[in-house]
């Protein structure tokens, strides 16, 4: 059967998400960042994204690539890349404003201040934005769901008076569960291939 350019693009993008590893490691990452933040270990929280990306790359190389092959996706369409970058800058600035207000207030307890929701929702909003654009770039609808869930989790935790750390931990759970389930399905569907 012939394939259109659009179908080929979809097929290539699917290769990056069909093993569920990206979901699984994102889940582990979010839960770990939230946990380390909660126990005030910001150093471990900060190195987590880098560690997670490396674990994901190694796992893909060892588990997924021998089964489904390796593909390097082309850069996204210029317009999409520009729009993504602009929104990410806006969200980053919002986050920075939150931190500046927090520092100005003596870096103390922010709960009860008018800017508390901004401070508490900032990290989640930032990650939700990245997740939203990942959904577009990877052509993977479940990432839209994750982005929505991250925002909902942030809203609920703020409403309950909890901080951003718990919001991140709760956000990671669906990533982890869906990732594990997708990974199990992937392993049974794709036996190791020989070159």
């Amino acid at each position: 059967m012939m394939t259109t350019v659009k179908q080929a693009e979809k097929f290539a993008a699917k290769t990056l998400t069909e093993d569920g590893l990206i979901d699984f490691f994102s889940g582990i990452g979010l839960i770990a960042i939230g946990y380390f933040w909660l126990i005030d270990n910001s150093a471990l929280s900060a190195i987590m994204p880098l560690a997670i990306v490396n674990f994901w790359k190694i796992s893909r190389k060892r588990i997924s690539e021998p089964r489904i092959g390796k593909v390097t996706l082309a850069r996204g369409k210029k317009g999409n890349v520009r729009a993504g970058r602009t929104i990410l800058i806006i969200v980053s600035l919002t986050l920075a404003v939150g931190v500046i207000l927090w520092l100005k207030g003596g870096a103390g307890d922010v709960q009860g201040t008018w800017y508390y929701p901004l401070f508490a929702a900032g990290p989640s909003l930032f990650i939700a934005t990245i997740t939203f654009f990942s959904a577009i770039y990877l052509k993977c609808p479940r990432f839209f769901g994750y982005a929505g869930w991250i925002i909902a989790a942030a809203g609920i935790t703020i409403w309950l008076g909890e901080g951003p750390a718990r919001a991140l931990m709760i956000s990671g759970v669906p990533f982890l569960v869906v990732g594990l389930w997708t990974f199990a399905k992937f392993l049974s569907a794709h036996p190791k291939a020989d070159q």
Binding site: T3, T4, V5, A8, E9, F11, A12, T15, E65, P66, R67, I68, G69, K70, V71, T72, L73, A74, A193, Q195
Partner: peptide
């Protein structure tokens, strides 16, 4: 068509 939409791809992927 498959190579046009990506930067590069290995043999297993193309197969």
């Amino acid at each position: 068509t498959h190579l046009y939409v990506v930067t590069d791809a290995d043999f297993v992927y193309l197969k």
